[in-house]
């Protein structure tokens, strides 16, 4: 049975409320989700006045990373198609409350932000079998299906975490080999990007390495240790990393996605590149860089 969502217009001045009430009455039959008007904080969503018109606020938490928030802005004069778009977007978000779109990485962000508060074991499954269990308290995860399962999970349109019964943890600990949670976040970053920076990351951000990645346990390209070392020495943007690893764009993107997800790479707050000085060290820098390049060339590392 389809649930009915409730909408409040009480955050609007009288004129706007009247117009939107009229438009809502006209639009009602065109909405795929059933909406009815309600008052104040009892509603699932409420229109609030802003400078340009109105903004639809969702009054229940929604677990969709990178949602279309622009759809919630309505400009005066209000138009029925804009209202329909706003309510359709809100309806999708509210009815998929427990599910998350955006691939495995988005689901893992949701796990870290919303579900990592207890000893509970959470799981994700693929329809044709295979399961991932995670316990943040144990900083570990278990897979039924190998690393390929992570790619399969990433390809599902929505992922919804299920809470396992209390006894699941003991069973998993005794029957399966636990892998470190940072590896799952790392893998999530690698599989979800698909050649692009994760949608909530910014290519102009300078990143610095907070912790050296345990490459011994992590799948990686040969250039990853070099990029990690570069970001350890000074904050690097994506473009700088690309240049630093021989213009291998996809490797640099996967490195940033995986390292940020696993918490190895952090945003360098307020970083500005140092100005060229006239100190002895600054003068010697190009000579040293030349030497390093000559050594790299000789060793076949360029």
């Amino acid at each position: 049975m389809q649930s009915t969502l409730t909408l409040s217009l009480s955050g609007l001045p009288d004129n706007d409320r009247l117009v939107l009430f009229a438009l809502f009455t006209l639009a009602d039959s065109q909405l795929s989700t059933k909406w009815q008007l309600a008052t104040g904080e009892q509603a699932d969503a409420m229109f609030i006045e802003n400078v340009e018109g109105a903004n639809l606020m969702l009054l229940r938490p929604v677990r969709t990373v990178g949602g279309d928030t622009a759809a919630y802005q309505l400009k005066r004069p209000f138009q029925a198609p804009d209202l329909i778009k706003a309510l359709e977007t809100a309806g999708r978000a509210l009815t998929n409350q427990g599910a998350v779109s955006g691939g495995l990485a988005a689901a893992l962000v949701q796990l870290r932000n919303d579900l990592a508060y207890s000893e509970a074991v959470w799981s994700l499954s693929v329809p044709d079998g295979g399961k991932l269990w995670v316990c943040t308290k144990q900083s570990g995860y278990w897979l039924d299906g190998g690393d390929n399962l992570l790619s399969k999970l990433d390809q599902l349109p929505y992922l919804e975490w299920s809470q396992e019964p209390r006894e699941a943890l003991g069973q998993l600990m005794s029957e399966r080999e636990m892998q470190p949670l940072f590896r799952l976040y790392w893998m999530g970053g690698m599989v979800s990007g698909r050649g692009k920076l994760l949608p909530w990351l910014n290519s102009s951000t300078p990143w610095h390495l907070a912790t050296w990645p345990s490459f011994f346990k992590l799948p990686h390209y040969p250039t990853f240790p070099r990029m990690a070392a570069a970001a350890m020495k000074k904050p690097m943007t994506l473009d700088e990393l690309i240049a630093f690893c021989g213009n291998n764009r996809s490797a640099a993107i996967e490195f940033v996605n995986a390292s940020v997800m696993a918490g190895f790479l952090c945003e360098a707050q307020g970083y500005t590149a140092p100005a060229a000085g006239n100190s002895k060290a600054a003068a010697a820098a190009p000579a040293k860089e030349g030497l390093i390049s000559r050594i790299r060339r000789k060793l076949g590392l360029l």
């Binding site: 490459f215 011994f216 040969p222 240790p225 070099r226 990690a228 070392a229 570069a230 350890m232 020495k233 390093i292 050594i295 790299r296 060793l299 076949g300 590392l301």
Partner: peptide, 21 residues
């Protein structure tokens, strides 16, 4: 870096990292 000194690629990775830092 985890490294097996008997493997050339491992040693090259270590040198690559050192040359970077």
């Amino acid at each position: 870096c985890a490294c097996d000194p008997r493997k050339k690629e491992d040693v090259l990775t270590v040198l690559d990292v050192l040359l970077t830092v």
